[in-house]
Write a protein that binds this DNA or RNA. Structure first.
Lengths: 107, 107
DNA sequence: TCTAGGTGCAACCCTTCGGTTGCACCCTGT
DNA sequence: ACAGGGTGCAACCGAAGGGTTGCACCTAGA
């Protein structure tokens, strides 16, 4: 899994909105998704392709329509990275506090 | 808190590396951070400024040096967004499975 | 005081990104 | 068959991103 792709995809508010919309509605076409937005269908397609490149969205053709759906599994990997990084810091902070306020004066 | 800034800052592998380095080493100057990297000190400074803009890093002047340190609190907010979004999807998937394989045929 | 190391600022380059437009293509329904 | 809606592709544009270089400034230390 590529953290670059996932974080990069989530960095854009329009893409986060598209992702949540897909999660709420289950599946939709680019045309449908573009309608309430102030941008073109083509722009939405580009955003969806970015999401797809991060494996956060997938598309399947049905007749002349292309239905997009969310695939939030990589969110878990990204969350894991965040929590692990933050947890490491918490542990380090805990050790630092121990060292500062702990029993022995020496570090 | 701005998810744009945090996710955007984490989208770059160099910035993630800088962040983890700061978390491991506690604090460092831009010159120190740039030394093992194949990029210029100025590039590192720009990356650190991006991290600072997302409130993921902070700097303080000490004499003629500027020491940078990590501030991973926003990671928790970003992780919360990820988990919440993923959890929503899990609940929806659970309901869908109930509707498909559950007792009553109507949704 | 003078030298050297660390920093900040500004200009510049090339690439990527977000977005638009125009057009060709294909599927659907009458 | 044919009109219409949905899609894909390509070109184009302005802005932002990542990176570099050059130089001025300031602080520490001899």
């Amino acid at each position: 899994m590529t953290l670059d792709g996932v974080f990069g995809a989530l960095a854009d508010p329009t893409r986060r909105a598209l992702l949540t919309t897909l999660l709420e509605q289950g599946a939709a076409t680019a045309t449908d998704l573009a309608q309430p937005l102030p941008i073109t269908r083509q722009a939405v397609v580009k955003h969806l392709q970015v999401l797809a490149h991060a494996d956060l969205a997938r598309c399947s053709r049905q007749g002349r329509e292309v239905r997009w759906s969310a695939h939030p599994a990589p969110l878990g990997d990204a969350a894991e990275w965040l929590v692990r990084t933050g947890a490491d810091w918490d542990r380090r902070l805990g050790r630092l506090q121990e060292a500062v306020s702990g029993g022995s004066t020496s570090a």
